[in-house]
Computed example of a mutant assay.
Amino acid sequence: MTDILFQPYTLNPTLTLKNRILMAPLTRCMADADLVPTQAMTEYYGRRAEAGLIISEATIIRADGQGYPNTPGLFTPEQIAGWRKVTDTVHANGGKMFAQLWHTGRVAHPHFYHGEHVLAPSAEAVEGSVPRMRELTYQVPKPVTKQEIEQLVADYAQAAANAIDAGFDGVEIHGANGYLIDQFLHHDSNKRTDQYGGSPENMARFALEVVDAVIDRIGNDRTALRVSPGAYFNMAADDRDRDVFDYLLPALEQRDLAFLHVGIFDDAMEFGYLGGRASSYIRSVYHNTLVGVGSYTAETGSEAITANKFDLLAIGRPFIANPDYVAKVKSKAPLVAYSDEMLTSLV
């Protein structure tokens, strides 16, 4: 049933994956105090190089993008050098790796970068506190100015260039899961009345500017994007959100990205304004390479690929529990069950 997962898959003339299994981005909060990848991280990713493609844990593009402790960066020479050790090891073990580029927007916290403001599309705060640091509560963000938006776009592009310098095969821009780019794409978090808010075209503008800047810097063949049409994480749903993605997804298709990645934790979730699952909605609008994710097993993921629901399968927590996930699935060996205790160390 899982044979389709082990077929090579050509993303474009530049990149061919040895199988259709991707390691999903998994935030582990294990970088050092300067947000530099550690030797333990190098070994952790190296052990998972049998995946057709590893997508790194979310990696911040600049200091004020940090919203969790010890998340790695890609904006200092030391961070770039640390990631180079990771990618060299993955490549030596026969793998490929994309960096996931991240700014958390309104769920950042000044504690991490000794700043004054949290930046977001609008002054719309998230309730609650920072995971793993519950004493830090979220703040009302400062709406970004046009000049600050231009700088953010430039910083995404620079982070993409840094990723290539660090040996990554490409980047996945994190435009999903309630973080900065996603905040522009949903009415709950975007109340702007300028050229970045109000209409679908305006609300999609920042995402497309980031994508275009990254493409200009490293090429569309090495640029991917993760999106969450369904608002569900740090975000309230709004029926008008569909209009934004009805505009955005065809525009992305024209840019011929390496792939588009569904941003969902459980793809069994359904959204009324999308007419069902996020993956089904995206597939109906976007016809290029699509990565499915969200509580799939190798078997159910294979069935979805065979049914043309998506093209590649990203696996998350089972990869934490099973560094040899690909080999186990291929040999039909039993998998180790994931448990939250596994988050305390890198294995």
Rank of each mutant, 00 (worst) to 15 (best):
M1E: 11
M1H: 01
Q7H: 11
L15M: 07
L15D: 08
T16K: 08
N19E: 09
C29Q: 12
M30T: 03
A31C: 12
D34G: 14
V36H: 00
T38L: 08
G46Q: 11
R47L: 15
R47A: 15
R48Y: 13
P69K: 05
L74S: 02
G82L: 04
G82Q: 05
G82R: 07
A99M: 15
H103K: 03
T104Q: 13
V107E: 09
H111L: 07
A125K: 09
S129R: 05
S129V: 06
S129T: 14
V144P: 00
V144C: 09
E150S: 15
L152F: 13
Q158D: 13
A160C: 12
I164S: 07
D165Y: 00
G178I: 14
L180E: 04
D182G: 12
F184K: 10
N202P: 08
M203A: 04
A204Q: 07
V210E: 06
D212T: 00
R222N: 06
T223L: 01
A231F: 10
A237M: 10
R242Q: 11
F245H: 07
P250N: 10
L252K: 05
E253L: 10
F259P: 04
A268I: 11
A268G: 11
E270L: 09
G272P: 09
G272V: 13
G272D: 13
Y273R: 01
G276R: 03
R277S: 14
A278I: 04
S280Y: 00
R283C: 13
T289A: 15
T297H: 01
T300V: 10
E303N: 12
L312N: 03
I315Q: 04
P318H: 06
N322E: 11
N322S: 05
D324I: 14
A333P: 00
A337W: 07
S339D: 12
E341F: 11
S345K: 12
L346K: 02
